[in-house]
Amino acid sequence: MADRVSIAQARIDQAPVVLKAYGLGSCIAVGLYDPETGIGGLGHMLLPCRPVKNPLGSESKYVDAGIYQMVDELVRAGARREGLVARVTGGANMFETAYQTLINSIGSRNARSARETLAKLDIPLVGEEVGGNRGRTVEFDLASGNMLVYCARGIEKVSL
């Protein structure tokens, strides 16, 4: 489906498309949007930081590099750089932290990397729904810039 954003992917599009990312566990989804042009992007990232040496594979699997790449593509597509706002969801801790390992906090590390990267880029974070221990699905509506987040087996939907 053209509007689905799978793990380690990012998609840029324009209103009235709705971009979707399914089954976010510790992965983080970052939605960037320019309200004036209706151009936006959704990234589905897996790892917090791109390693300096020997990064392997696509940029969009890393939160930091993925956000930078999305901003470049958005501007090239005609979005206003100074008009961009961000919404972030995901970054859950899917398993109980019975034993502390690096992996168990990957969700929070992804969330932190997103906040830090957005701050460095001076992009305001206008909505956030991260953490917890449930999987999430997100629908990013480029007509309104709204992000709808919901869990499996959950009745509540959160609107960012």
Binding site: G23, G25, L56, F95, G135
Partner: peptide, 26 residues
């Protein structure tokens, strides 16, 4: 290792396993 369990959407259940793998490639 000690087993981990999750009852949730497939994407959320497996991304833990994919994190390690993705450090080696795509």
């Amino acid at each position: 290792s000690v087993p981990l369990l999750a009852y949730d959407m497939a994407g959320a259940v497996v991304d833990y396993v994919l994190i390690d793998l993705s450090q080696s490639g795509d």
